[in-house]
Amino acid sequence: MYGELNMDRKDRAIRKFRKELRSGVYSYLILKFLKTGELHGYAIRKLLEELSCGKFVPSAGALYDILKSLQKQGLVESFWVMETRPRKCYRLTNLGEEVLVEAEKEVRLIGEILNKLEVKE
């Protein structure tokens, strides 16, 4: 009983930790993808799938939330395109491009720190 409870807590903690770690990286990767050109939400998930062999892909609902928040911050803008029905595509804004430059520096810094840590270990 206690073990089960503990597992539950562990699962919850892992899920929370994963969510927190991933959400920033997802945002960063989305900006990175959009730098090469406008993309549909489905294509963004596909790119993440290919990049991570399916291990690092947000659910459609989670991706929707991330894209919404990026739009709110003014980093990304959306527009409709026509297929058999209207589909929503996204592109990087000027502000998004500027923020991406800073984010790239930040990611590089994190990478360096993690590398140093690995060498020490």
Binding site: A60, W80, V81, E83, R87, C89
Partner: peptide, 19 residues
């Protein structure tokens, strides 16, 4: 709108034209 957009993310895109 939210449900439509989440569904939209799940459906493959093949060939669209920018209107």
């Amino acid at each position: 709108k939210k449900v439509y957009e989440i569904e939209d993310i799940k459906v493959p895109v093949t060939n669209y034209r920018v209107e």
